[in-house]
Simulated scan of single mutants.
Amino acid sequence: MRGALGVGALFLAVQLLALAAAPRLADAGVSYGAGGDALVPLVLGLALGTALSLAVVRYGASRRLVRGVMLLSLGAAQWFALSAFLGAVGGAVAAAAGTALAWRVPRPAVRNAVAVVGVAGGAALFGASLAPAYVAVALVLAAAYDAYAVYGSGHMLDMADASADLRVPSMFVVPTDDGYDDETATVTGGGRPAATLLGAGDALFPAMLTASVGVASRWELYAPAPFVATGLPVVGEFHLAVLGPLVGSLVGLAALQAFVHRRRGVHAGLPFVNGGALAGWLLAAAAAL
């Protein structure tokens, strides 16, 4: 229960921070362009992360080099989230401090805090760049790939172990045993799990949809667009349409935790959380219609 609640709190923190940052980035013109242009850097970034992780596990690549590249990428993602509130310079200083902490103090609490900011920054950037319909396509494709990578090729297990070995904040780690040792922990080892884990991507994709709907719902005040629940009330700057993917993804996360509790091991999380986010988004749109 402690692990499930902890992961749920971190998951929600990513969603809320991305939702707050994305409209600010959109207003400042920080995006990957219009239409579906942002799908290209999204795919390239995920492919690079996969290649780096597998290079360590399967080909013995330099752990220090790979860890450095991953932390630099994480620093850039943090900057997107932090600059939305602190400005470009303040955000850069805070992101550098967070990256340095992740490098020097690889404890679960520090890694989780840095991961929340970094994942939210990535979700905010893509949420500000992509309309909800494009994000929905990305969620469907990512869920299918995640299922294949876990249950088909199995290389997602190698990536998870690489993340644990590199001690990079690419997953959320909530210890469930007082004797949890982050230095020797592995993901696929036998025995009772010492921690509840959630991949960063499992939080990234649903937060992208929530952030995208949040940005689009503000635009909806002036220009209608499809699949945004314009008939729902406005709270502050946002339509309650954002509750669709946000609550739906939380329901999906709860279903994932229940499934993992029944069947121990590593499982594909995106089919659950992405499916919940998409269902919530469509239900919100249908409610408005």
Results as ranks from 00 to 15, higher is better:
residue 35 G to A: 09
residue 154 G to F: 10
residue 125 L to T: 12
residue 234 V to C: 12
residue 120 A to F: 04
residue 111 R to Y: 02
residue 54 L to N: 05
residue 25 L to S: 03
residue 136 A to M: 08
residue 116 V to L: 05
residue 270 L to C: 06
residue 8 G to N: 12
residue 85 F to S: 01
residue 207 A to C: 07
residue 132 P to M: 00
residue 205 F to I: 02
residue 146 D to H: 06
residue 270 L to W: 06
residue 25 L to R: 01
residue 180 Y to R: 08
residue 188 T to Q: 01
residue 159 M to D: 00
residue 48 L to I: 13
residue 112 N to H: 06
residue 116 V to K: 02
residue 89 V to D: 06
residue 120 A to E: 02
residue 269 G to Y: 07
residue 266 V to C: 02
residue 116 V to E: 01
residue 66 V to K: 02
residue 215 V to P: 05
residue 235 V to M: 09
residue 222 Y to D: 14
residue 13 A to K: 03
residue 189 G to H: 11
residue 271 P to L: 00
residue 279 A to V: 12
residue 11 F to M: 13
residue 4 A to S: 15
residue 230 T to M: 15
residue 59 Y to W: 14
residue 258 A to I: 15
residue 201 G to N: 13
residue 191 G to D: 11
residue 275 G to P: 05
residue 195 A to G: 10
residue 164 A to D: 10
residue 258 A to S: 15
residue 39 L to H: 11
residue 29 G to R: 02
residue 70 M to Y: 03
residue 145 Y to L: 14
residue 8 G to M: 14
residue 97 A to N: 11
residue 102 A to L: 04
residue 149 A to P: 04
residue 57 V to M: 15
residue 260 V to E: 03
residue 197 L to M: 13
residue 154 G to Y: 07
residue 50 T to P: 07
residue 49 G to E: 13
residue 3 G to K: 04
residue 281 W to R: 09
residue 35 G to Q: 04
residue 182 D to Q: 13
residue 130 L to Y: 02
residue 9 A to S: 05
residue 60 G to W: 03
residue 2 R to F: 12
residue 257 Q to N: 11
residue 284 A to Y: 08
residue 289 L to G: 13
residue 9 A to D: 05
residue 25 L to C: 01
residue 88 A to T: 13
residue 33 G to Y: 05
residue 185 A to R: 13
residue 215 V to F: 04
residue 112 N to M: 05
residue 225 A to F: 01
residue 217 S to H: 06
residue 70 M to W: 05
residue 284 A to E: 02
residue 94 A to H: 02
residue 226 P to W: 11
residue 248 G to Y: 00
residue 222 Y to F: 15
residue 267 H to Q: 05
residue 217 S to V: 07
residue 3 G to C: 04
residue 240 L to K: 13
residue 106 P to W: 08
residue 254 A to D: 12
residue 142 A to K: 01
residue 123 A to N: 01
residue 93 V to K: 03
residue 15 Q to K: 00
residue 17 L to N: 02
residue 77 A to C: 11
residue 166 L to W: 12
residue 220 E to F: 03
residue 228 V to T: 11
residue 211 A to Q: 02
residue 241 A to Y: 03
residue 143 A to P: 08
residue 101 L to N: 04
residue 198 L to A: 11
residue 156 M to P: 05
residue 223 A to T: 15
